[in-house]
Design a protein around this nucleic acid. Structure first.
Length: 114
DNA sequence: TCCGTGACACAAG
DNA sequence: CCTTGTGCCACGG
């Protein structure tokens, strides 16, 4: 297992139910803004425990071109968790994952007073 | 090590 | 809306 693949899986695993990300977004979040294709390649090799169906192409569509069964599967998995597809696309404006939450800084005003 | 292959992205026509 | 062409880069043979 390659480091890049592990990094992809680690991140994709964090995408919550009801949210989606794009291949390019995952790549960028990992620090490889031009490795979107490599993300797709990594997901092709991932196990079923990973929420791979939450990763879409730049237009919010499903990229499993030649795999009809896979496309249907991804669509079903998405709709099952409340992500609708209109004309074959997910509304990224509405469902895009914001990315992993960095640990909040602990400089709270309340603490300053103490 | 080199080379072809994409579950991509983006711009142009 | 297409469709094509180009850039990209990890992976596998």
């Amino acid at each position: 297992m390659r480091e890049f693949d592990r990094a992809v899986y680690r991140l994709v695993f964090q995408i919550p139910r009801g949210r989606v990300a794009t291949y390019g977004q995952i790549a960028a979040l990992l620090g490889y803004p031009r490795a979107a294709r490599a993300v797709g390649a990594a997901l092709k090799r991932c196990g079923p425990e990973l929420p791979w169906h939450r990763v879409l192409n730049h237009g919010g569509g499903i990229s499993l071109r030649a795999n009809v069964a896979g496309m249907l599967t991804q669509r079903i998995l998405l709709e099952r968790e409340g992500i609708p597809l209109r004309r074959g696309r997910v509304d990224l404006k509405r469902h895009r994952w914001a990315g992993p939450r960095r640990r909040p800084k602990v400089t709270l005003p309340a603490l300053e007073k103490i």
